[in-house]
């Protein structure tokens, strides 16, 4: 299992580098990158200062974990992340204006949402609930916009907590296709080359890591298998890709018609930020959907 280290300016540079490279490589995606880029950067900044898991060290039952009971399913207090609602109003002050600039079509609703948070019409607890999919109503804000904004607000805190939680179980085996921390489904995968100290010929392919759509925890997973149905028949597993961008592919299963995006980093000089990488794979994602496949989990931009 692997998690992103505590955010540093290097992580922000990584996002900016990946964005500028993507704009240069795929000019057609510039509007999309310019819309989501500032959001990803601001989220990374918030993650950098987020408190992480402040509760007691969890007592994980290794046997249950091995059978698929993820970390938050083993907590005593309800199976969720720690309450971050107190931190959300401050986060909203920085993130909502960025989102308003990036998404002019919903800027008015975001301004209304910001005002509701400031006035107390929308409590931080209700806002956090909306971030986790609860139905909350704010006059003048559509449910879709509220859900989008709230989930983006809670995400940096969730990711930072997940980082600490994943560290608690990093030595335990995990063979499942759902997230070992929160149980979320993967919306991205990455092949990473393993540093090999041996004196023998080294594998070039890299190990496969799935990435959680909810908390971005990464965990190692069997490479030739469908994370949705477990199919391991090579004839039924497909790699869909654009030959011009061979390191980006959609790993699809013709048996269950599911797919997950995959970034093959074996040949890359620099590892791009994975959110930016997923953003640049949107055309591939759309083409894969058009061929009748469905993603295991979506990105915020998947429905565009």
């Amino acid at each position: 299992m692997q998690t992103i280290e505590v955010e540093t300016p290097a992580a922000l540079r990584c996002i900016e580098t990946a964005l500028s490279r993507a704009v240069k490589d795929i000019p057609a995606l510039t509007p999309l990158l310019e819309a989501f880029g500032p959001l990803l950067t601001e989220r990374a900044r918030l993650r950098q200062t987020a408190p992480g898991w402040t509760g007691p060290a969890l007592s994980i039952d290794a046997e249950r974990f091995n059978q698929g009971a993820f970390v938050l399913a083993q907590t005593e207090f309800g199976g969720g992340f720690e309450d971050m609602s107190e931190l959300l109003p401050e986060a909203a002050r920085t993130l909502l204006p960025v989102m308003a600039r990036s998404f002019p079509a919903i800027a008015e609703e975001l301004t209304t949402l910001g005002a509701a948070i400031e006035s107390g019409a929308l409590t931080p607890q209700a806002l956090a609930g909306a971030g986790f999919g609860e139905s909350v109503e704010v006059p003048g804000v559509s449910p879709m916009t509220l859900n989008f904004a709230a989930s983006e607000l809670v995400r940096p805190f969730v990711e930072r907590q997940a980082e600490d939680l994943a560290a608690m179980v990093k030595v335990l085996p995990w063979n499942q296709a759902h997230c070992p921390v929160c149980g979320g489904a993967p919306n991205m995968s990455v092949l990473r080359r393993k540093e090999d100290e041996s004196e023998f010929i080294q594998a070039k392919g890299g190990q496969r890591f799935l990435r959680c759509s909810c908390c971005t925890t990464e965990w190692k997973h069997k490479r030739v298998s469908c994370p949705a149905c477990g199919c391991e028949e090579p004839d039924e597993l497909l790699n869909l890709r654009d030959p011009a961008r061979a390191h980006e592919r959609a790993d699809a299963c013709s048996r269950c018609k599911a797919f997950v995006l995959c970034l093959d980093t074996a040949e890359l000089a620099e590892l791009p930020d994975l959110d930016v990488a997923a953003l640049t794979m949107l055309p591939l994602e759309i083409q894969t959907r058009q061929q009748g496949y469905k993603p295991l989990a979506e990105h915020p931009w998947s429905s565009l």
Binding site: D196, I201, Q202, K204, E267, A269, P272
Partner: peptide
């Protein structure tokens, strides 16, 4: 490198 790919000799080296 400008396409974010490793130099060819590095990509190829089987021994690390």
């Amino acid at each position: 490198l400008q396409a974010n790919l490793l130099p060819m000799c590095v990509k190829t080296c089987a021994m690390g």
